[in-house]
C-alpha cells in the first residue's frame, strides 16, 4: 500500500505534539534523576542530572516513610510503608474488582431481562445519574457512613465502590448485546441453569472487557489519595502517604526536594510497570456517544 505524504496541517500538529512529548519526557526525566541526587548537590545544581547518583533518598524513605494517625481516645499510630502498601492493595485491588463487578452483573441482568419493568428503571437511573450533576455530597456521605458504623473502614469504602452507575454499565450492556444468544440457548438445552450459563458461557466472553475496566479502575484507585483521605483517614494508602509526607512533614530531610521526588517515584514506578505490560488494554479503542449516521 502506498504511504501517503503528510499534509502541512499534519506537520503542524506533529510539531505541537512533539513539543508536548518533549516537555513530558523532560519533566519525568528531571523528576527521576533528581530523586537520585543528594540534597547538598541539589542546592547548587537544580537542573542537570547528577554525576554521583545516590539511593540514600530511597533507603531513607523505606525506613521513614510513615504516616502518623491520631485516633481520638486511643492515641497515635505510626503506619509504615508496608501497611500503606497493604492498604493500597485492599483499597485498589478489592475496590476496583467490586467497582467492575457491579456494572458487569447489573448490565447482564438488564440486557437479558430487558422486558422487566425494573430493568427499564435501572437503565433510566444510570442515564439520569450521568446527566444530573450532584455537587458536594461529601458531608452527607460521611454522616451516612458514620451512622452505619462503616466510616473509616475498608468495608465501608468497598460498599461505596460496589456501584453500577456510570459509563461502564453502558459499555457492558453493549458487550452483552453482542454475545450470541444461540450459545446461551444451547446451554439451556443442555440443562444448564441461569447461573451456569452466566458464569460458564457469557462471563468468559466478556472477560477481556472485565479485565480492562478492572485495570482502569485499579490505576485510578492506586493513584487516588482524595477518597481514602476523606472516608478512610486511619488507613492511609501509599498515595495518601506521599500526600502526607509532602504536606504534613515540612521539615528536613522530608522537605528536601530530592527526598520528595523519591517518594513520588515510589508511588509511580509500580503503576508505570503495570502500564508498560498492559498499555494496549488500558489504551484500547474506547468510544462513547457514537458516530452520527
Amino acid at each position: 500500500m502506498e504511504k501517503k505524504k503528510m499534509s502541512a496541517f499534519n506537520w503542524v500538529i506533529f510539531a505541537v505534539l512533539a513539543l508536548y512529548a518533549l516537555s513530558m519526557i523532560l519533566l519525568l526525566f528531571w523528576g527521576a534523576t533528581t530523586a537520585f541526587k543528594a540534597q547538598s548537590e541539589f542546592r547548587t545544581n537544580r537542573i542537570w542530572p547528577t554525576l554521583n547518583p545516590t539511593v540514600n533518598n530511597f533507603s531513607f524513605l523505606l525506613d521513614q516513610f510513615y504516616v502518623i494517625v491520631i485516633i481520638e481516645g486511643e492515641g497515635q499510630y505510626f503506619i509504615g510503608m508496608g501497611e500503606q502498601v497493604l492498604n493500597t492493595i485492599l483499597y485498589a485491588g478489592v475496590g476496583s474488582f467490586l467497582m467492575t463487578l457491579a456494572p458487569c452483573v447489573v448490565a447482564y441482568a438488564v440486557t437479558k431481562f430487558e422486558n422487566y419493568f425494573y430493568s427499564k428503571v435501572l437503565h433510566t437511573v444510570v442515564i439520569v445519574a450521568m446527566i444530573l450533576p450532584v455537587v458536594g455530597a461529601y458531608p452527607s456521605m460521611i454522616q451516612v457512613m458514620q451512622t452505619l458504623g462503616i466510616y473509616d473502614t475498608f468495608l465501608g469504602l468497598w460498599l461505596q465502590k460496589f456501584n453500577f452507575l456510570g459509563l461502564y454499565f453502558l459499555t457492558f450492556c453493549a458487550a452483552y448485546k453482542n454475545v450470541s444468544k444461540e450459545l446461551s440457548e444451547a446451554a439451556y438445552i443442555d440443562g444448564a441453569n441461569e447461573w451456569q450459563t452466566f458464569l460458564q458461557i457469557v462471563l468468559p466472553m466478556v472477560r477481556n472487557m472485565f479485565f480492562t475496566v478492572f485495570l482502569i479502575h485499579f490505576v485510578e484507585m492506586w493513584n487516588d489519595y482524595q477518597v481514602p483521605l476523606l472516608y478512610l483517614p486511619s488507613h492511609p494508602t501509599l498515595a495518601g502517604g506521599v500526600h502526607y509526607l509532602v504536606y504534613k512533614r515540612n521539615y528536613s530531610p522530608f522537605s528536601d526536594t530530592p527526598v520528595r521526588l523519591a517518594c513520588c517515584m515510589i508511588l509511580a514506578i509500580p503503576i508505570l510497570i503495570l502500564f508498560i505490560i498492559f498499555r494496549n488494554k488500558l489504551m484500547g479503542n474506547v468510544s462513547m456517544g457514537g458516530v452520527k449516521e
Binding site: L27, L28, N223, Y225, V242, R260, L261, L267, A268
Partner: peptide
C-alpha cells in the same frame, strides 16, 4: 502516573 505525583514533579 498519579495526578499527585505529576503535579508535585
Amino acid at each position: 502516573v498519579s495526578a499527585l505525583v505529576f503535579a508535585l514533579i
